[in-house]
Design a protein around this nucleic acid. Structure first.
Lengths: 120, 120
DNA sequence: CGGAATCCATGCCGATACTG
DNA sequence: CAGTATCGGCATGGATTCCG
């Protein structure tokens, strides 16, 4: 009987901030949303076009969620018709490295997947 | 009427590798699974204890998924009873930076959330 | 324009039981 | 030990409609 080895690494710091984070970044559109907002303030409809295919409902949900988290801020601008801008907060900007890391991994996975298809 | 501005940034490279990636990293346990495997080969039951609370079914599902993706490999070891080891492939190791980035973001979000509670 | 409200399909994931 | 099989809840996200 092979004894079970103890964990080689400590659990992800403070009991799984990985999950804490994925809980928010995990939303289907969240990473892309942050991706586009990272370039500067953006309006609701603009974001809706950036994230081609997202429903108003989901966009609203995600925007609210991230606003509550302090990752972005909503700003009413008194024009006519009124416009609303969203932009990343300082905290939100801290997410960029993670988003970029995820994006590059995504590219690798796509490459690999493509290779597989041509190989087979 | 305020004209809608065009996107300020290119779409996430190659049409959303962000989603390509999140599709896999998004699974509830996936990031933690990779976290533990990053330290070295690990057996099924060991992983099951590492990821406290995961069901056999989910663990199997995630392991298969990641194996199919080429992120980790399964290796039968002819002991008695037979044991099986999983370890990250070279491709799998490339995910570590992303996982780490996500983990550090997770920690920040936890900090912030904690501050909020004490502040209010 | 910038949403809110409602209904509904999908599927992720947990619980439980069983196997070579 | 290392899984497979089955059932089912419940959250996630899509489609549609309506509002100030």
């Amino acid at each position: 009987m092979v004894p079970r080895r103890k964990s080689l690494v400590p659990p992800p710091p403070e009991s799984c901030p990985l999950n804490t984070c994925m809980k928010y970044l995990g939303g289907a559109w969240t990473p892309n949303l942050i991706w586009y907002l990272a370039a500067g303030p953006r309006r609701f409809t603009e974001l809706k076009h950036d994230l081609a295919g997202i429903s108003s409902k989901m966009l609203t949900t995600r925007l609210r969620e991230l606003t509550d988290l302090g990752i972005l801020v909503r700003e009413q601008i008194p024009t006519s018709p009124p416009t609303v801008e969203y932009r990343l907060t300082k905290l939100g900007l801290e997410l960029k490295p993670a988003i970029n890391a995820i994006a590059s991994v995504g590219m690798r996975l796509k490459e690999i997947a493509a290779l597989r298809k041509t190989r087979v």
